[in-house]
Design a protein around this nucleic acid. Sequence first.
DNA 1: TCTATTATTGACGTTTCGTCATTTTTTGAC
DNA 2: GTCAAAAAATGACGAAACGTCAATAATAGA
Lengths: 238, 238
Amino acid sequence: MVTVTRKQRERLEREAKILDLARGMLHEVGYLGLSMDRIASQMEYSKGTIYQHFQNKEEIILALANEALEKRLEMFESASTWSGATCSRDRIAAIGAAAEKFVEQYPHHFAVEQIVRSASIWEKTSEERRQFMQVCEGRCMQIVGGIARDGLAHGDLELPAERSAEDVVFGLWSLNFGAYTIVTSSESLEENGIRDPIAALRHNQNLMLDGYNWRPLYGDRDYDAVMDRVKREVFGNE
Amino acid sequence: MVTVTRKQRERLEREAKILDLARGMLHEVGYLGLSMDRIASQMEYSKGTIYQHFQNKEEIILALANEALEKRLEMFESASTWSGATCSRDRIAAIGAAAEKFVEQYPHHFAVEQIVRSASIWEKTSEERRQFMQVCEGRCMQIVGGIARDGLAHGDLELPAERSAEDVVFGLWSLNFGAYTIVTSSESLEENGIRDPIAALRHNQNLMLDGYNWRPLYGDRDYDAVMDRVKREVFGNE
DNA sequence: TCTATTATTGACGTTTCGTCATTTTTTGAC
DNA sequence: GTCAAAAAATGACGAAACGTCAATAATAGA
């Protein structure tokens, strides 16, 4: 029915608008400054209406986190199917580029993810949205893990008996997540001699992959150039 | 004067008690559940008295974070001067053991650090405590950086022209901080095949250091055993 | 013992959350 | 076009929390 469709569309549009407002507010005044009253007044709706979309404040935060993880998953998928890759490790480099671009292009998405990981907002939120987070997280891991398993299958990579593809995934995830968290939250990097953390991250990541003996090694291929290409060709760096 | 000393001592004791209560509360009911009224009522003091110790709620959180970073700094210092080290890389392993022990023994300390890094509580807090955080952070980095510079001086480690000891520090920090953050905040590690993340972290860290060609390499020395020894000998693992 | 200083209190104003009875709008049958 | 039923929107309200401050109590020292 036409009317139902229009209603639903309006509902979705309004929901998107609430989230847009919330995202901006979160960015400007932080987690604590985010207020339902202010969202309501900035929208042209009353508070009660906002509460028809989201049970509570935490649900809004989690909805923002859902958008964030969804976006990253999408970017990981684009990166993993990049046609320019000539080897499995190129595809890992492409994922690295996606992670880099994600933080650059959507810093608020990354910030929300951090908030959700540290503040305990889980109790009050819906099972549905919590599950969505896990699905996105799991699929991102599957993408990276899949590339590692491809590498194993093609002989680009071997692992000692007690290590699995998942350990590689965990290593890359830790290193990247940790680095971006520190970069966005520490004020004293510069004065402690860390002038170009992103370049350092790329380097450290490649050293770790070299440690896994994932060929071609860093010395034999310019993965920095590969990452820059991916950022340009897949994500349209200006 | 005797009286002043007693007063001051009482004041410090009460401050410690406030922080103890706050820590427990933070752990039980999370950042949002932490309430000044509840702290006041659980202490046998009124709210006004609490506010004579801490300007606001954020100051309490930051004071907890200060304790956390101070504790870690102390553990890093103990680890870095461990007498059992036979080479510079042993000392790095010792730091790794300290980081591991820190999260194990004081999980609430680590949780507070994460909160402080993500929630924007900085604006309302005192310059003094903010600075203390940076000092601790900087000194931890200096300890690790110092070991790297020792390694360079002794020829255990060489770096390419465009890399510095600080990049090694940043790599270790990222990898560790990221790993512990993920471990304490992700619910789906197990079902995604990451069964022993701490073992994986140790492995990944060693691979990265191998990538830097920090000798003796992982294959030539059992750094896992070194870390276990440090945890036993320095931090008294039961 | 008495006054001056210091410490403590808790009621208060404000803000925000989340609810719900009331009002407004929309829908669809006639 | 009319009207009753359903759906949507409203904002006043109670509860809870923050941070303040005038009033009160405790203490120190003359």
